[in-house]
Amino acid sequence: MRITIKAFASVKDSLGFSERRLDLSSGTTAEGAVRAVERELGVGIPDFDSLLFAVNEEYCRRDRVLRENDVLALFPPVSGG
């Protein structure tokens, strides 16, 4: 299946992209998708345990199972205001 992954703020800096298309096997979780990207690029995202995940613009757990054409967003704790 194909999904889109978006990265913001410090995560975007760590991964070196703001948006990327990914081919994954069905049943892959949000966290699994991010780990696959880290392996592919040979990079590690600092403070991984504090990261927030969203699918199709809604917050989700990191064990959320992804579906075809999902848009997965990955970002650090928010700091607006």
Partner: peptide, 12 residues
């Protein structure tokens, strides 16, 4: 304002 600071995906 308290909820914005906790949940809205904005970074500084």
């Amino acid at each position: 304002i308290d909820t914005i600071k906790k949940t809205v995906p904005i970074w500084k």
